[in-house]
């Protein structure tokens, strides 16, 4: 590849820039991710919907949490991974990084939509309102629009590389919103409760509720892995189609 020794980290990374190598790895990972997703989803749904106790204050409405909280985790995790990929795309011009960001954005938007909708369905009986303009809810709504903006920008240019570059800059600038979302419940007065799992002093939630929550979190992560690989495969094939059409038209 003609890369010097001091570029070793870049060299290892660029090994995975080869779509053939990536596709082999993806095909090996995909079935394991699918099995993990199905097992954790089954166990998480059973525990969350039936086997876990009702909350002493919220009653059975607490079960909405088992889909709301993991979806919100994923909304932040997917955006963070997109920002990291965008950094790699802009600095090292890693071709798979752009591909990842493009494939991940619609999935992140889906998780954010789930977090917003399920939060609303919980807010109505518990707070007496479908929506309040408080710091946590508003910053997550902004995250949803960042995802939509990313999708729109990626597809806004005739030349895909220009769209990918513009979208990568948006992903990096928009990353400032991620810590704002995470700490909004500590920085401002808000109706939204503070975190009870991802705390420095350990979870304050009862194990009977923590287990379904973690299982659903693993299930959603496995789901993301499966679907992002599928979308990257679709995009790699789409690029191949474009290249083959172009060479046929040219030759």
């Amino acid at each position: 590849m003609g890369l010097k020794d001091r570029n070793r980290p870049a060299a290892t990374m660029h090994r995975y820039a080869n779509p053939a190598r990536f596709l082999r790895l993806a095909r090996a990972v995909q079935p394991w991710a699918a099995v993990l997703t199905i097992i954790c989803l089954g166990a998480g749904l059973y525990l969350g919907l039936f086997a876990s106790p009702a909350d002493y204050q919220q009653g059975e409405s607490v079960r909405i949490m088992y889909v709301h909280v993991p979806a919100a985790w994923m909304a932040l995790f997917v955006y963070t991974s997109m920002a990291a990929a965008s950094f790699a795309a802009l600095v090292w011009k890693h071709p798979l990084a752009d591909l990842f960001a493009k494939a991940a954005a619609p999935i992140g938007a889906g998780f954010t939509l789930i977090a917003l909708a399920t939060g609303s369905l919980w807010g109505k009986p518990m707070w007496g309102a479908w929506w309040v303009w408080d710091s946590r809810l508003t910053s997550v709504l902004v995250l949803f629009f960042l995802y939509l903006g990313h999708i729109a920008l990626t597809n806004a240019f005739d030349e895909p590389t220009r769209g990918a570059r513009a979208a990568a800059i948006l992903a990096l600038v928009g990353f400032v919103n991620v810590p704002i979302i995470k700490f909004s419940v500590d920085w401002w007065n808000t109706l939204h409760q503070p975190s009870s799992v991802l705390r420095l002093d350990g979870p304050t939630i009862d194990p009977s509720m923590l287990w379904p929550l973690l299982l659903m979190g693993v299930a959603f992560t496995g789901y993301f892995l499966c679907v992002v690989i599928l979308r990257m495969r679709a995009e790699i094939a789409a690029r191949r189609i474009r290249a083959l059409r172009y060479s046929r038209a040219a030759g």
Binding site: A54, E60, S61, R63, I64, V67, G110, L121
Partner: peptide, 23 residues
């Protein structure tokens, strides 16, 4: 769901719809 069925089930249904649709 202790009277909360009208909120709990739609929450899981929306999540299922979005995730299955994307898949």
């Amino acid at each position: 769901m202790g009277g909360y069925g009208a909120y709990v089930w739609p929450a899981f249904a929306i999540a299922a719809l979005v995730l299955i649709g994307l898949l």
